[in-house]
Amino acid sequence: MTASAPIAVLGPGSLGALLARLVAQGDQPVAWWGGERAPVVERRAKRRGERDAGGKLPPDVLRCATPEEALGEAALVFLAVPAGALPDLARRLGARLSPDRLVVHAAKGLEGASGRRPSEILAAETAARRLGALGGPYLVAEVLGGYATTLVVASRFDEVHQAVHTALASDRIRLERTHDVVGVELAGAAVVALGAAAGLCAGLRLGSGARAVLLARAQVEATRLGLASGAAAETFGGPAGLADLLVVSADTEGLGYRFGRRVGAGEPADAVREEAESRTEALRALDGLQALARRLAVRAPTLEALREILVGNAVPAATIDELLRAGS
């Protein structure tokens, strides 16, 4: 592997394409795998007259048919897949993600039943050790539209910070570095869950005060979980936590938000879940947070109640009302 080896971005959809685009803008060679169904998705998009996912890709983005091909000899690898798809991709790549590569994921969420964080999944399934997590308040459309934002790169290793900074930082993308991987991953999972909670509040036509109280309480519980897991409280109040939550809770077109809104508006949760299961990570994140809360014996009643509503085990209006009356 040499310094001039390309950077690889593995991930379908707009986030994968966005990362490939950001890297290519820095005049660095990049190989991108957009998922098994990428060509079909792109053909459909073109038929509908839409732009390429993630905007027009520069010509020096090398599109690859398989993740193995994209991986090549890359020294820096971005895994831009949702948390639910990460275990399969990690197992598939296995030892190919070798210890000499710097591997950074952008998955916000947890493994549902076990509550494993993405970096724990990567450590267990691959040979990579120099791992990082990407977080922060960004919307793909805004980044493509030229708005400035801050990304957070969390890694135990300074060389991962440096490599990601070199790959992504620009006059519009500011990179914040932290060693608090646990904090960034748990804050990211909480944001995914709370995006759906924000939608739920909208569907229930709650006032902004009640919504803010609900989200703040859930965020405090997530912070408590983080502290019990060894994370720093500041992470939950920073760009990867609170800032991201502000963005996601206001993004009315976000998948999680839309899902929550429909449940709040009275559609049966089962029906919504079936329709949206492949698109939303909110339930998985809530499952994971709950699994973690049980394991660490941390009280998280708001997160638990939100999960019960979103899986259809509790009546939304009555449960939220009860939560708000109960106090913190």
Partner: peptide
Amino acid sequence: DARGRVVDPRSFVLR
């Protein structure tokens, strides 16, 4: 590694 696969220890310290 964690899965019991053989890994090259050199690769941990290569740059």
